[in-house]
């Protein structure tokens, strides 16, 4: 085993139309690699932990850029950078949850090139997996993190199924909270999948984190107007305040009328392989005031069914605390 850090030789395709990109992606199937900002690409390839025959660079596809207002909300091109999302006036005004999440991703340098599509499609950050070990997620037959001695501080407390990695995305939970729709183009046409269904856990597909299959291209993200100007809460707790992945994050969208929570979508990040909707909390707070009393009333509802590993019990109180903060309406 040796350390590699040089890009391997591979074909480079730079299509300028989605249909061309789909054609190339189909041609190479699972040996093709779609790249946008490249923040979850070059590491894999340079490390030789994963390989591909062809790199399909999507950055030349203009139709996948831009943030546009639609009849029912907004549409964000897949290639829109996280910095653009963080600074976009429309998003900041109406869907501040997403801009708040985007600005917490990694570092300014990464946000400047990293795209929304890349952020939601990125692979898990389990250090064993990223090392290139042949674990379950890599198609192997064991997990190195979920063992009596595994170093699993950052791993899942819910819904682990052999693999215990968590979703590293900050914007993913926010999009689930906003009931975003993911627009996927492929040779068989376009399909639209809810953000909630976009992410898949290891129980369903242990080697993928999303429904995207070879030949699929996530071309846009649509956010419906339903949650425009709702009350939002986002907080990401990570070891470091920049250039880090969440230990736990919480995204919440709440429709509050006269101080009462009429409807809410509360989603935790980094506690399982997919963004975790806290439906029990959502139901418990429906019709209640957004205040300290309601925050206290949910207690440890969020973490109730958690199954922590050796080193990640802290995620349970941390998750409960973030839920309280969201419901309290203030830090």
């Amino acid at each position: 085993m040796s350390s590699h850090d040089v890009m391997p030789e591979m074909s480079l395709y730079q299509p300028v139309r989605v249909e061309d990109a789909i054609g190339i992606a189909n041609q190479f199937a699972d040996r093709g690699w779609l790249v946008g900002g490249g923040q979850d690409t070059y590491g894999w390839l340079k490390d030789r932990a994963k390989s591909a025959d062809a790199l399909i660079d999507l950055k030349g596809i203009e139709s996948m850029r831009g943030i546009t207002e639609t009849a029912d909300g907004i549409e964000i091109g897949a290639l829109v950078t996280l910095t653009e999302i963080a600074n976009n006036p429309l998003i900041k005004e109406r869907y501040a949850l997403l801009s708040q999440a985007a600005v917490k991703v990694a570092s300014p340098q990464i946000r400047n090139v990293g795209t929304i599509a890349g952020n939601v499609s990125q692979d898990v950050r389990c250090w064993y997996y990223r090392r290139g070990l042949n674990c379950y997620r890599a198609g192997g037959n064991l997990c190195y993190a979920d063992t009596p001695e595994g170093m699993n501080r950052e791993h899942a407390i819910f819904n682990a199924s052999r693999c215990v990695a968590v979703t590293p995305s900050d914007t993913g939970p926010a999009l689930v909270a906003l009931e975003a729709q993911m627009v996927i183009d492929s040779a068989s046409g376009q399909r639209v999948v809810s953000a909630e269904d976009f992410f898949v856990g290891p129980n369903v597909d242990i080697t993928h984190t999303t429904v995207l299959a070879p030949g699929d291209i996530l071309t846009a993200v649509r956010i419906p107007a339903k949650w425009a100007n709702a009350q939002f809460f986002f907080e990401k707790v990570a070891d470091r305040n920049a250039w880090d992945f969440a230990l736990v994050s919480l995204s919440a969208a709440m429709r509050v009328n006269n101080g009462v929570i009429e409807e809410s979508r509360i989603v935790a990040g980094a506690v399982q392989a997919t963004p975790r909707r806290l439906t029990s909390v959502e139901q418990a707070v429906r019709g209640k005031a957004r205040d300290e009393a309601t925050a206290n009333s949910v207690g440890n509802l969020a973490s109730r069914d958690a199954n922590p590993l050796n080193y990640n019990h802290f995620k349970m109180p941390l998750m409960d605390n973030l839920v309280k903060r969201a419901l309290r309406g203030q830090a």
Partner: peptide
């Protein structure tokens, strides 16, 4: 680290 502080307080 933050996790240790959370564990302690909890």
């Amino acid at each position: 680290t933050a996790d240790m502080i959370v564990n302690h307080i909890a």
